[in-house]
Nucleic acid binder design. Structure first.
Length: 562
RNA sequence: CGGGGCGUAGCGCAGCCCGGUAGCGCACACGGUUCGGGACCGUGGAGUCGGAGGUUCAAAUCCUCUCGCCCCGACCA
């Protein structure tokens, strides 16, 4: 490929709207252009990267026996109504009507459609198992598209679905996918973790996410280096570190009310009483269908709403008047003792002596001992954070910002039952198909690769997904010998099967060097007048910036040995 | 959806407070000199100042509404 004929609109300065490193470089290096919020055009360089990623994904999916198909992006509403997601999903779904006034939507995912297919076509246990996948656009009206191609409203996803007779079959399909995903992300040159995740509205019991560490990531995971426990903070369990020593000795004290006028928040009372936040019980009055209840966490901790929701179902915070009506005081002074409300307390409170609201206007109470002064249901309802100990092995946990690049779900019968995707077993008995669903975002792989591999000059692509393998840089287009050498190397490498781009523009060397570093092809061969006089060209590795002085023939050989 | 910021030439920005008919750098075109890390000189093309309405003799500038984009949060198969 000739640079002069290839569309690479590089920018000297980054557009002001870009913030994430991957976004800035993809714009500057001429990979993408933005059409509207969360909608991107992939220019030739980016599309090459995408195709290489998708090729790797295809190879690994095919290798586990998955078969590629293609489903429509436009869906009739009734299938989504049957699974309940038409109503369960809110504004995130693009909805429209066709000319016949029928409700339609743009697919956010394809469980409904593929299950419909399976329901129409699969009759017998003899037809199972099956694994079908596609690479297809998904549409989600994101509340906040961001970070370039990391979070967009239309994006390509590799989504696959497994169909099995039973749970064991599902476990096998799930395992195959997990292994394929490991190979895919490894081949794409990414650092990543597989972590436990919250199935969310996908339903099902078990799910994992594949996470690429990056400051640009939107999720946070906890990792235990000792036992390998790893999970999204959406559900990660942990043992909170023991709080700092309280300033005043509380051990053995009897209950003692202290006047704390106008101090309502933990921070306010803590500084007023000169005690650490971890000496306090934070009491939150919440309302669910059965009425009010208290959620208790240590003063320095944060309530994890998702964890709590798993225990009690849906809830909401009580309003100001409700708090007064139920406990007789305003929210700043409520506490766990002297009332019969249901209480869910975080495990970190099980031991120790604490300060809490006194349920009396303007007062807190010291000396509260859980299980002695109040009873509660104990559970992990706090947000895990840096410094907490692993819930499995007690080792220190670390937290990491990550980009979600893939996920796998054991769905079970969540879709097959409502859509009547069933098969007849050996006994002629009808059984629901057991399903799994598995996604990968190729654009996120590309973005994560840039986030993880760049320097101040630009992108440094992993070899496997770079738009080209080699960039040849002849420094003087007017020198016959330079051009002949460049053409010969270009011909040899192309013939040997490499994807080669040659910067044949009549530009100054500085511009060619800058652009080459920006674009990030992993290897460069620089051909200049001085070197050629001595019969050498320069083979340069983009990542290390190291150059090797080689004869043109050796340079070709060097590339072939990569 | 809540909070904040920004829309002026392809990109980055100044001008706005204090109204007087739009400017700088880069990019682009042409000519010349250059040529190993984003050259220099000269000439030139390019802007409904996001849009609509209003105030005014006069609006990029003041007022009202509106659209778009970015960031933080909420949300997130």
């Amino acid at each position: 490929m000739r640079f002069s004929q290839f569309f690479i609109p590089t920018l000297r300065e980054a557009p002001a709207e870009a913030e994430a490193v991957s976004h800035i470089y993809m714009l500057r290096a001429g990979y993408v252009r933005q059409l509207a919020a969360g909608l991107y055009i992939y220019l030739p360089l980016a599309w090459r990267v995408m195709n290489r990623i998708m090729k790797i994904i295809r190879e690994e999916m095919n290798a586990i026996g998955a078969q590629e198909i293609s489903m429509p992006g436009l869906h009739p509403a009734d299938i989504w109504q049957k699974t309940g997601r038409w109503d369960a999903i809110g504004d995130e779904m693009f909805r429209l009507k066709d000319r016949g006034d029928r409700d339609m939507c743009l697919g956010m995912t394809h469980e409904e459609i593929i299950t419909w297919l399976a329901s129409m076509e699969i009759r017998s246990y003899r037809a199972l198992p099956q694994m079908w996948y596609q690479m297809q656009a998904k549409f989600r009206d994101e509340a906040r598209p961001k970070s370039g191609i990391l979070r967009t409203r239309e994006f390509i996803m590799k989504d696959s679905y497994s169909f099995d007779r039973d749970e064991q079959g599902l476990a096998e399909s799930y395992r195959k996918h997990a292994e394929a995903y490991h190979r895919i992300f490894k081949r794409c040159g990414l650092r990543f973790h597989q972590v436990e995740s919250d199935p969310g509205m996908m339903g099902g019991a078990i799910s994992h996410e594949f996470m690429a560490p990056s400051p640009a990531g939107e999720d946070t995971i906890v990792l235990c280096k000792q036992c390998g426990y790893s999970a999204n903070t959406e559900l990660a369990r942990s043992i909170p570190a023991v709080g700092a020593r309280c300033a005043m000795p509380l051990q053995g004290e009897e209950l003692e009310e202290v006047h704390t006028p106008n101090r309502r928040t933990v921070t306010e009372v803590a500084s007023f009483l000169k005690a650490d936040a971890s000496c306090f019980i934070k009491s939150l009055l919440l309302m669910d269908d059965d009425g009010p209840f208290l959620a208790l966490v240590r003063g320095d901790q944060e309530l994890h709403e998702k964890k709590l929701r798993k225990i009690v179902g849906n809830f909401r915070p009580a309003q100001k008047e409700e708090v007064k009506g139920i406990l007789g005081v305003e929210a700043g002074f409520i506490g766990p003792h002297n009332n019969n409300l249901r209480k869910i307390a975080d495990i970190s409170l099980k031991e120790g002596t604490y300060i809490a609201g006194a349920n009396r206007e303007g007062y807190h109470v010291k000396g509260i001992r859980p299980q002695e002064h109040f009873q509660a249901e104990w559970d992990d309802i706090h947000v895990a954070r840096e410094g907490d100990a692993c819930a499995q092995c007690k080792a220190l946990l670390t937290l990491e910002k990550v980009i979600e690049i893939g996920n796998i779900f054991q769905l079970g019968t969540k879709y097959s039952v409502p859509l009547k995707a069933v098969y007849l077993d050996e006994n002629g008995k009808e059984q629901p198909i057991i399903m799994g669903s598995y996604g990968i975002g190729p654009a996120r792989i590309a973005a994560a690769a840039v986030e993880q591999n760049h320097d101040k000059d630009g992108i440094i692509w992993p070899r496997s997904i770079a738009p080209f393998d080699i960039e040849i840089i002849p420094l003087d287009m007017g020198e016959k010998e330079i051009m002949e050498t460049a053409e010969a190397i270009y011909r040899d490498l192309t013939y040997a099967g490499f994807e080669v781009i040659m910067d044949d523009r009549d530009e100054r060397p500085g511009i060619k060097f800058k652009d080459a570093d920006l674009i990030g092809i992993p290897y460069q061969i620089v051909i200049g007048k001085k070197g050629l006089k001595e019969g050498i060209v320069e083979f340069k590795t983009r990542m290390t910036k190291q150059t090797e002085r080689l004869s043109p023939a050796d340079a070709v050989k060097r590339v072939k040995e990569l």
